[in-house]
Design a protein around this nucleic acid. Structure first.
Lengths: 133, 133
DNA sequence: CTGACTGCAAACGTTTTGCACGGTA
DNA sequence: TACCGTGCAAAACGTTTGCAGTCAG
């Protein structure tokens, strides 16, 4: 169980017990949707409000402490901000996995052929995980 | 103004005037969100219901006539189904552009290092378009 | 002619807001 | 202590559903 107090403060967020628990949950599970996060949080804070979850998720995104991952045919999940990476999603069990890939050359290719100034590349692979094949 | 009657039928969809207009709108604009689509449709059908838009969008997705594109920090947009391609999104004006890139080698790389069986790769670049730079 | 589609209104689930209280720094 | 965060309730929002009438095939 990591201590995220300093990390939260570094992102200009007060380290409340609820926020620490959100951080710990995302750290532990990697990727969590709102509904599951609420269920998990209820175990530690039996009167936590969904409003608190939403408010914290939103401010944590604004302050770049966490990030939303939009996934085809599924609810968005949230993860702690880390180095840029891509995602694999299992169509069957919904599992989300990180993968670090070098997208620099393909990004340059895209930039040159479109005159876009590219800042970010979000790549999500869909398919079947090892267990579901 | 394309005639999408046969195309709709090929996807097992009845060619109603409302559906033809949705197809034409997506063809004309490339990528449209629900709200804008509703506004545009209202010009041709002054009593069209949002429910009709949603029902059609959903059945058209189920029948693979159109596809949803999920975009960071923006509402989803919809496009006619075409060959696999990636997207560029302007963070400033919201414009969405298609780009065809070969993702086969990067997909294989991802598949091999994770034991996933990959079926699809959704790639969205974010940045600034030529006009907004 | 028949099943599918449309438009309307109501219902639904998700997310946001306002407020009084409580806790962090 | 002062401000920010929390929990509650209500409101707002986006999307779906049921139904009666209409239309495409």
């Amino acid at each position: 169980m990591n201590n995220f107090t300093d990390s939260l403060r570094a992102h200009h967020l007060k380290a409340t017990p609820q926020r620490l628990e959100i951080a710990n949950t995302l750290y532990k599970y990697g990727h969590v949707n709102i509904e599951d996060l609420y269920e998990i949080m209820l175990k530690k804070f039996n009167s936590i409000s969904l409003a608190t979850i939403y408010k914290n998720i939103n401010i944590m995104i604004e302050n770049a402490f966490i990030q939303e991952v939009k996934i085809p045919n599924q609810k968005s999940v949230y993860e702690l901000t880390k180095e840029a990476h891509s995602h694999l999603v299992c169509d069957k069990c919904g599992m989300v996995e990180d993968i670090t890939l070098d997208l620099s050359s393909i990004s340059e290719l895209a930039a040159h052929s479109t005159n876009f100034q590219i800042k970010k590349a979000d790549l999500v692979f869909s398919g079947l995980c090892k267990n579901c094949q």
